[in-house]
């Protein structure tokens, strides 16, 4: 699947401006950035509740396909700008981490 399919998913809002679609090969769930930095697989859809500027830095470093902020995690305008600068696509959903990952897993 690609990020284009996430764009269509109910309850998921894209926070960053439209960008080129990325292939998603797996899902990764982690909120500790020091761990995500070492273990997030490239091309994964990373589901997290860590809405910090460093989330974008780690996403870019690990080359994930996109970041999905679960549980309505706050994300500042600065962070959105940073994500766009880094070419990281960010979505947000009210659903918790597990439910979010499970829904995307069905599409893989």
């Amino acid at each position: 699947m690609t990020t284009l399919q996430l764009d269509q998913l109910d309850g998921l809002t894209k926070l960053t401006r439209p960008a080129e679609a990325r292939e998603i090969t797996c899902i990764y769930c982690c909120d500790l950035l020091s761990l995500a930095m070492a273990q997030a697989p490239a091309n994964s859809a990373w589901v997290t509740v860590m809405g910090n500027r460093n989330t974008i830095a780690v996403a870019s470093l690990a080359d994930v396909a996109c970041v999905i902020l679960a549980a309505d995690t706050a994300f500042s305008d600065d962070c959105i700008t940073k994500a766009e600068d880094e070419g990281v696509t960010v979505y947000r959903t009210a659903a918790p981490i597990f439910e979010t990952a499970k829904r995307i897993d069905l599409l893989l």
Binding site: L32, L33, S34, A36, N52, R53, N54, A57, V58, D78
Partner: peptide, 11 residues
């Protein structure tokens, strides 16, 4: 801060 965020945020 280092365990949670991996590094000190630039700002």
């Amino acid at each position: 801060i280092l365990a949670v965020l991996g590094s000190v945020p630039a700002e």
